[in-house]
Structure formats: C-alpha cells, structure tokens
C-alpha cells in the first residue's frame, strides 16, 4: 500500500548537515499497524512527516521514493499532495491542544474538515460528524464543547475523529499517547485497534515506548541515529530481536511481568548527528561490536521476512 524506498532526509542547519533519516526503506500493507520506535533524535518523527512532505525547514527530502499505491508522493505537485493530505493520509499529533482551534467548538472543527473535502450537504455532514464522534467514543452532546472543556484523552479522541473523517488509507500517529496517562493511553490504543478492524485503515504509529509499540503493532521498525536498524513482525522481535540495539533496548525497559528487578542500560549517549560515528551508528555503544562495524555501514539483510541492519548476520 505504502512503500518507502531509500528515503534520506537532511536538516541543513547552520552548524552543518544533519542526516535525520538515512536510506530507510519500509512498507505498510493494507490495514496493517506498523510501529516505529526510537529515542529522541532517531529520526522517527521526521520519517513520519516526510511521508506527507511536511518536514519542517531547514529539512529537505534528499532522495528516495514514497509510493502510495504506486504513485510517488515526492513527484507530485504541491496541489496534488495537498489533496492527499487529510484525504488519503492523515496525521494525529502528540499534543492535540496545538492542533485544535481553541476558539471553535470541536464539532464544528470536525464539520469543517468534512465539508472542506467532501461534497455533501450540511445536514449530512453533521450526521457524519456525530457518527465519527461516536466511533471514537465521544457522546454526541459533546459536539458543542470547546477544546478546553475536554480532557486530554477526549481531545486526542477528537483528533483521531478528524484524522479518520475522510476515510484515509493511512493514519500517521506521532506519539499519540505520550501526553496521556497510562489508563487513557490504554483506552486510545484499544480505540486504534478497534478502528483498524472496523474501518480497515493502515496505521503508522510512532513512539519512544517500545512496549507500547510492540503491543499495538503488527510490524515494528526500530530506528537509531536516522537508520532503520530492524524491521520485522512484532512477534519476531519479541521472540528473537536480531539487532543488538533492539536487544539492549528491550533489556532497558522495565517489564512488570518479570520478577527480575535488574534493569540494564545502554552505556554512552545517542550519536551526535553532526559528527556521526564511522561505520554502524550503534557501534560505540554496542556490546557485540566488531572491527568491521567501526569501518563500514552494515547492509540491510532480509532473513525470513525480517529486515536487519547489522554485520552479525552477513556472510557467515
């Protein structure tokens, strides 16, 4: 459905070039939930924005292709991509307060989205808006509320309603639950799953929380320093993570199911993208780094549908 091929995104800052996304390829199937996990500066959000060509300046999409059902989004004109945004691909952001108009009733904001893109009457649009609110678990009597009258969880539900208003093929959700408490986060996660099975849209969910990503997604991409270290079905990553970064990251996350109270951390700091390390991005912190890792970038290998970028798995 959506295919990203060799995408590279640079930020041309005053202090130098930052390669935020480096040669990333991944694909999202119909009604599939793909999770993208990484720490701050890993390029996961930039990748999300790049799909809709919304990388903020001074960022530029350097090379690559983004194919939506075979159409390269990077080749479209500004008008054409604008028609894709919201209609075919929509976004849900971390903080709904910044994307909602504080002076407009939430129902009207939803109506506006519908009317702007669909050629239907006011009554019909209103009916649809109420249905959408119900679909995301908000009672119709909230239609006339202003954003500040709603709780954080409800605002995020409104954002989701707006994102699915035009029956998009893909919803990109950038840290959709980070600002929310764990119980509300759980509710939103369930909502996404429910919408996926009801509407059948695909979902690209971006988060720093690997537990959350593993719980919700069918496939998971692990990003580090702008590179896609691993891209595999979630079950495979849980069963046997291949890339040492994924392995270490999983060890660093407290798991309430285990009685083990030891938690490991990855020594060192995330890479400075102005002066990225030679070879593999992760080698300075990698417990299994070899000589070749310090010199050359590892290739991406495909083993049984699992993609991994690591020298450990190449040629013997």
């Amino acid at each position: 459905m959506l295919e990203i091929r060799n995408l590279t995104v640079d930020y041309m800052t005053r202090r130098g070039r930052i390669r935020a996304v480096n040669d990333v390829s991944l694909s999202i199937m119909d009604s599939e939930i793909v999770g993208l996990v990484g720490e701050s500066g890993s390029g996961k959000s930039t990748l999300g924005y790049a799909i809709l060509r919304l990388v903020p300046p001074p960022g530029i999409i350097k090379s690559g292709r983004i194919l939506l059902n075979g159409v390269d989004l990077l080749g479209l004109s500004e008008d054409e991509i604008n028609r894709i945004r919201g209609k075919d691909i929509s976004m849900v952001l971390q903080d709904p307060m910044t994307s909602l108009d504080p002076l407009m009733r939430v129902g009207d904001q939803l109506l506006e989205t519908i009317v702007a893109h669909e050629n239907i009457g006011k009554e019909e649009a209103r009916e649809k808006a109420v249905k959408l609110l119900e679909a995301v678990g908000i009672k119709a009597d909230r239609f006339n509320d202003y954003p500040h009258q709603l709780s954080g969880g409800m605002r995020q539900r409104i954002m989701i309603a707006m994102a699915i208003a035009l029956d998009p093929k893909l919803v990109i959700a950038d840290e959709p639950t980070t600002a929310l408490d764990v119980i509300v986060q759980d509710q939103i996660v369930e909502l996404f799953k429910e919408l996926r099975s009801k509407i059948g849209m695909s979902l690209l969910i971006i988060s720093h929380d690997i537990s959350l990503i593993l719980e919700i997604s069918d496939k998971v991409g692990v990003m580090y320093g702008g590179e896609l270290m691993e891209f595999s079905p979630s079950d495979e990553i849980i069963r046997e993570p291949l890339n040492p970064y994924t392995q270490e990251l999983l060890k660093a996350v407290p798991n309430i199911e285990l009685d083990d109270k030891t938690l490991k951390f990855i020594p060192g700091d995330p890479p400075d993208l102005l002066n990225p390390p030679m070879g593999c991005m992760f080698h300075p912190r990698c417990p299994r780094a070899m000589d070749i890792c310090r010199k050359d970038k590892p290739p991406t290998l495909v083993v049984d549908g699992k993609h991994v970028k690591c020298w450990l798995y190449s040629e013997g």
């Binding site: 759980d186 996660v189 979630s234 798991n255």
Partner: peptide
C-alpha cells in the same frame, strides 16, 4: 488492578 493492566507489555 486497572493501572497494572494498562501498562503495555510486550509478549
């Protein structure tokens, strides 16, 4: 109980 069960847990 709800807090504990809301924590996302991988496999």
């Amino acid at each position: 109980q709800a807090l504990i069960s809301a924590i996302p847990v991988p496999y």
